[in-house]
Simulated assay, not measured.
Amino acid sequence: MVGDLLRGFVPDTWVKELDLTTLEKCSGSYVSDDLRDRADDLIWRVHWGQDWLYVYLLLEFQSTIDRWMAVRIQTYLG
């Protein structure tokens, strides 16, 4: 599914160079700067030539419209 997401939503040519057979799920657990545990299980790595490329997928499923979604996304990225 991750390979399909990359091919379907990232239109750049470099995606075609990825070896999607090497996709591996990585640990997404970490501690934030203010020492709170955070968890995210959508970090993957994949071979791009000889190197590993880390792919961070941020998917947010909502049942209603959230007018503050842009602020929430900025918080996640920060």
Rank of each mutant, 00 (worst) to 15 (best):
G3R: 02
L59H: 08
D37T: 08
D41V: 00
L5S: 06
D40T: 10
I43P: 00
I73K: 06
W48V: 10
C26V: 05
S32P: 00
G8L: 13
S29Y: 07
I43Q: 01
G8E: 10
I73F: 02
H47M: 08
L77C: 09
L6W: 06
R67I: 13
H47N: 09
V55L: 11
R45G: 01
V46S: 06
R38F: 03
L5K: 06
L58M: 09
T21I: 05
E24L: 06
Y76F: 10
T13Y: 09
V46L: 05
L20N: 03
S29A: 13
Y56G: 04
L59N: 05
L57I: 01
V2S: 06
V46C: 14
W68E: 15
V55H: 04
L53E: 00
D66S: 05
L57H: 00
L20M: 11
S29I: 08
L6N: 09
L23S: 03
C26W: 02
Y54F: 13
S32C: 07
W14P: 01
A39Q: 11
V15A: 06
L77Y: 07
I43Y: 00
V2L: 14
Y56M: 06
D4V: 09
D4C: 07
F61P: 08
R72M: 11
Y56W: 12
L57A: 02
T13I: 04
K25Q: 13
A70C: 10
K16V: 01
W48R: 15
Q50K: 14
L57C: 01
D66G: 02
S32Q: 04
L20H: 02
A39D: 12
R72N: 13
L35R: 15
R36W: 00
D66F: 05
R7C: 11
R36D: 00
R67N: 15
V71N: 10
K25L: 09
A39T: 12
L53W: 00
L18H: 08
R72F: 04
Y30E: 05
F61I: 07
T13M: 02
L20V: 04
W68Q: 14
W14V: 02
E17K: 10
L18T: 03
L58H: 13
S27P: 10
Q74H: 14
L57E: 01
M1D: 06
C26F: 01
W44S: 00
R67Q: 14
Y76C: 03
A39R: 10
M69T: 09
I73W: 02
L59A: 07
Y56I: 04
A70I: 15
L42Y: 02
L77Q: 13
Y54M: 14
S63K: 10
V55N: 03
V15N: 08
F61K: 09
Q74T: 13
L18I: 04
L77M: 14
E60S: 08
L42F: 02
V31D: 04
G78N: 15
A39C: 05
I65V: 14
E60Q: 11
I43W: 00
T64G: 03
L77V: 11
W52N: 03
D66Y: 05
G78V: 12
W14F: 14
V55T: 07
D40I: 08
C26T: 06
Q74E: 15
D51P: 00
L18C: 04
E17P: 05
L6I: 14
L53T: 03
L59V: 12
T21K: 14
V71E: 15
